[in-house]
Design a protein around this nucleic acid. Structure first.
Lengths: 230, 230
DNA sequence: ATCGCAGGATTGTTGAACAATATGGCGTGC
DNA sequence: GCACGCCATATTGTTCAACAATCCTGCGAT
């Protein structure tokens, strides 16, 4: 029946039009915010009862929220001990950059979303970060830098890959907090984004890709060195 | 204290040495198996009470299992209506292949795990699939083909990317079941894997990558066409 | 046939309960 | 003083029961 198809279609398109997120999702949102902001530091124990009482939800709901955060790798469960804010290891950092080295250059070099307008949007993102630097807005620089890489990955044109990158960037923020948020950490990378975008504007996509690869390799080494000298 | 470091380290290494998975994970495993095997078809409703009674677990545990499957995109929640086995749409298929087009060629062309031994392992996988074809083992051919692509992605050397690919392949199986599991579907692709591996053995990594890209483009079109003529 | 409306079923969420496991303190023996 | 074993306590893992909110179904009225 045509009506069946219609209701099916309506259901597929907007998974939720304006439906409020479930309680578990709201709890997860609140916790995620605190974690990526650094308010909840790596290694912090997330006690079910404490959090439930603090946010006004039952243990079962908190538990569902934990499951979401664990799936995002922002938290880790230690059986019969509890859930903790994740503390990325050197191995985790290497894995993050192995992922980024695979995805970001590939998206930049062959992403189907590439176009003059896309390059213009990337330029805007870099400029916004530069304004933040001139204002001394350290957090803004970091955020702008993340937005640049997020936008690069978006060129791949895949929701799934975007989602993966979202998780990568969230875990990167955890890594930065773990190192104590050195204020000057992100600053030098702005100029390297500038080089990449200039290559793109000059039509040199391969050159931009090579520059991005070098960027990622240096950033990884930078972080790993910082991790061993805390 | 050194002892603190030790217990920390011991905890990091083997997340669980021999610990049995939790009840929720076991339920999720059972359901996942049924889903990717095709025993639970796309669109099937997963009622909390029914499944709980069938497997002997409480509603809360079932709910946690559902959360896992939903995170893997093998199931979808429709608020206040229930959880259903996911039914991939044409858009989902396009997204799957956008992801594969990004990841697989990149892993093959620049993955740090590439080596003569890795090529030899890929050769073995292809040969195993070929044996299945000669035996008329259709399921074996499909499985061998998946194993080939899984192995290609493994060249990237990232757990995270491997995990992404695991989800992609699981959803691919859902797509195949959705189309009715045409017995001859995977057969032609074996020869294309053969071409790829021959390029690799000849030292032509770029050629193999190009062949892989063409493979993926054709497979995507093949599937999308089949979807519109069911 | 369309609309509205009650009745029943299922989900979303809560609260309480209990076993299993981990943590920390205490005493004991060396 | 310190290593060891033991017990009290706290927390997790899981179950069960309950209730409101929402959705689906069928029936009757228009």
């Amino acid at each position: 029946m045509a009506n069946r198809d219609l209701s099916e279609a309506l259901r597929q398109i907007p998974t939720r039009v304006s439906a409020q997120p479930s309680a578990a999702e709201r709890v997860a949102d609140a916790l995620r915010e605190q974690i990526v902001n650094g308010a909840l530091r790596s290694g912090t124990r997330l006690t079910e009862e404490t959090i439930g009482a603090a946010l006004g939800f039952s243990r079962n709901t908190i538990r569902e929220a934990f499951a979401l955060l664990i799936a995002e790798r922002l938290a880790a469960r230690e059986p019969n001990r509890g859930v903790f804010v994740a503390t990325p290891t050197a191995g985790d950092i290497r894995d993050l950059y192995a992922t980024r080295q695979l995805i970001e250059p590939a998206a930049l070099e062959r992403g189907p979303g590439f176009s003059d307008e896309a390059v213009a949007r990337l330029r805007e993102v870099v400029e916004a970060a530069r304004v933040c630097r001139e204002r001394g807005d350290v957090a803004g620089v970091a955020q702008g830098n993340q937005e640049f890489h997020r936008s690069v990955v978006r060129l791949a044109g895949s929701r799934r890959v975007d989602h993966l990158m979202e998780g990568v960037l969230a875990e990167m923020r955890l890594v930065f907090h773990l190192m104590g948020d050195d204020p000057g950490f992100h600053e030098p990378y702005l100029d390297r984004n500038e080089v990449i975008i200039r290559d793109l504007e000059a039509g040199d996509r391969a050159g931009a890709t090579a520059a991005l690869r070098a960027y990622l390799a240096d950033a990884e080494e930078h972080l790993l060195r910082a991790l061993h000298h805390p």
